[in-house]
């Protein structure tokens, strides 16, 4: 009985709220209206997102690693002695044999060079996030612009950009990165730029273009054209904002591929960086501990971290896909 009344009264309440809302919005300055509407949209999307338990699992893992990344500088400053716990130049004097197994002082043991594994793990988290987010932003900026421009102008620009995209998705991605980083000196920023360019002009651009094609034929684009909006005005003010949900979704997938590529490249010892999860496994390999189950703490924490963070972003991306992609919705 209660269930029924709820269903009946609910729309009424919403209508009343909306009228009040409209009155309130009229009195506000424009920027506050925009902020309010954005906030409301985020709240609605969050409700949709939180229905999906798979996405919540991913989000939980991401938050866990974000806390680790933030905690490291704090621990280094006030709790851990830099001489012992520094992830790159520290040396644990209190252990006789290196690598030492996990103990109370070193929760995940030490590596063959006497450095604390937990500290390395937490220190690397920050650069993994930085790399992933930087690569994702570059990918999505290029991909969205390419997609919108190709869809809006069509013709020769479309042909050129799409042939370029065909060429890029044909490239074996990991192999190209390995060849590039073996021949050129690469650090994290260059790697992020290379990954961003390759996937922005490649796969991401193609997917976003097909979405932009459906937006291009909407009535409001016609209206903007009739009222004299320039091409670039229409692209940046009308098409790209409507592509944002899809772009955000593809950001998640590019974070996964960026973190994975970095880990593979540093596992092969091809990257010019100070510390990362892949490099930790590489260190264990070069010191000859790779196939020794007794020294599991050299490999398992780093390998597990790469896997967990990659799959977390992937899971969040899939959960967003069910919101953005209407064909997959439950209702």
């Amino acid at each position: 009985m209660e269930e029924k009344t709820k269903v009946i009264t609910k729309p009424k309440v919403e209508v009343i709220l909306e009228e009040e809302e409209r009155k309130r919005l009229k009195e506000m300055p424009l920027w506050r209206v925009r902020l309010y509407l954005t906030w409301r949209e985020i709240r609605n999307n969050w409700r949709l997102f939180s229905e999906n338990k798979i996405g919540l699992v991913g989000l939980g893992i991401i938050i866990f690693y974000a806390i680790m990344a933030i905690a490291h500088p704090i621990l280094m400053k006030w709790v851990w002695d830099p001489n012992i716990y520094d992830p790159i130049v520290g040396y644990s004097y209190d252990e006789v044999l290196q690598p030492a197994p996990p103990s109370f002082r070193h929760l995940l043991g030490t590596d063959p060079l006497g450095r604390d594994v937990l500290s390395q793990l937490m220190y690397s988290t920050r650069s993994e996030f930085a790399l992933g987010i930087l690569a994702a932003i570059i990918t999505v900026t290029i991909g969205t612009t390419v997609g919108a421009v190709a869809a809006y102008f069509g013709g020769i620009i479309d042909t050129l950009l799409m042939r370029l995209a065909d060429l890029i998705i044909m490239l074996p991605f990991v192999t190209i990165l390995i060849v590039l980083s073996a021949l050129f000196k690469m650090n994290l920023i260059i790697l992020a730029i290379v990954i961003g360019i390759l996937s922005g002009f490649g796969g991401t651009g193609i997917v976003i273009k097909s979405q932009a094609l459906t937006i291009k034929v909407r009535a409001y684009i016609e209206a903007a054209k009739v009222s004299g909006g320039s091409n670039w005005h229409i692209i940046f003010r009308h098409i790209i904002p409507n592509l944002m949900p899809l772009s955000f979704l593809y950001m998640m997938f590019s974070v996964t591929s960026a973190i994975f590529s970095e880990a593979v490249l540093s596992f092969f010892g091809l990257l010019n960086i100070r510390m990362s999860w892949g490099l930790m496994i590489h260190t264990a390999q070069t010191a000859g501990y790779l196939l020794n189950p007794k020294t599991w703490w050299l490999i398992v924490p780093a390998g597990l971290s790469i896997t967990l963070l990659c799959s977390a972003f992937y899971l969040v991306g899939r959960a967003l896909d069910e919101i953005v992609n209407p064909r997959l919705r439950k209702r």
Partner: peptide
Amino acid sequence: TIGGVTLYTVFTPWFGLM
């Protein structure tokens, strides 16, 4: 799904070693 995605995005060299 979670098991499959974890395997799909697993750090391949590490998984191979395991």
